[in-house]
Amino acid sequence: MSLDTDSPERARPEPIQAVPVRHPGRWVAVAVIGVLVAMFVHLLVTNEAFNWSFMVDNMFRPPIMAGVRGSIALLVTSMLIGIVLGILLAIMRLSGNPILRGVAWAYTWFFRAVPRLVLAILFGNLGMLWSRIEFGLPFDRQIGALFGVQDFEARLFGFSATDLLTGFVAGMLALGLSEAAYMAEIVRAGIQSVDEGQTEAAQALGMTQGQILRRIVLPQAMRVIVPPTGNETIAMLKDTSLVAFVPVSTELFFQIRAVGSRTFQVFPMLVAATIWYLLLSSVLLVGQYYLERHFARGSGRAGQARARLRGMAVGGGGAAGGAGGV
């Protein structure tokens, strides 16, 4: 009866009221930072070169909004190409077929070695190689010549190369194909992070390799794949500005520079570009947080609750509880 530990009879020790350790260094740091921030704000407000009113007036004009939409379209399509092709390349890299492995390796080697800016401009000029791009039987003319038929052509359909490789398509291919090389490495690391026992258990249940990859291995690999893919997406958002040099005109940075140079207000428009990219990346960060939370399912006893709390605090950075780094 009197063994109750919460018994009020038992005297509770007095709460500790010690003098906390002082941190004079912190106050010095606060003072220094305060002065620097004040100087920066002063610069922003008083320096004429910023021309804030011009910037705000021009930042949301129709051509720039079209540029924003173009950049987002470029981001989405190139990342889609990158992810799909990257998964394919990763599977090829891990397959037992030495030819597939070699092709995937060579692809990755090429597209990681060439800078994206160079790739983008190169793709923009591919129209110089062929005037038309056609689909049909390969080497049809040569085969025709072999059988004595002059000008034998077996072509199904075709486009004018300059039509197909408009700036947008060239930029999308350059960015997407290059992204695939990086995604392949990320996906490969993710697949390899999944325990062998998972594949064995699935095999023992009668699943085929394709089913195992789709339903068992890739969903688990996602925990390792999603965080770096989020970073890749944000990097890609920034790299869409490279295609301004293809040139792609329906793109944010191209439009910003156009307005800047036409109005001789280069600097305010560069600030506008900075703000636009900040805004768009912040949206991506939020998306990344929710994706990571989704794929952290079942990891760790309190993993989900913890990830939720931590994610809120840091705005998405590394929210997946216990997800191994790559």
Partner: peptide
């Protein structure tokens, strides 16, 4: 293999699926 069940020393449950989903996965998929 469908006719042969196997139980492993280290369980090898699918960690991204609930207990129920672990059990229903193969009959549904395979």
């Amino acid at each position: 293999r469908q006719a042969i069940g196997m139980v492993f020393q280290r369980f090898n449950l699918f960690p991204h699926k609930t207990a129920l989903e672990n059990v229903t996965e193969a009959p549904l998929l395979v």
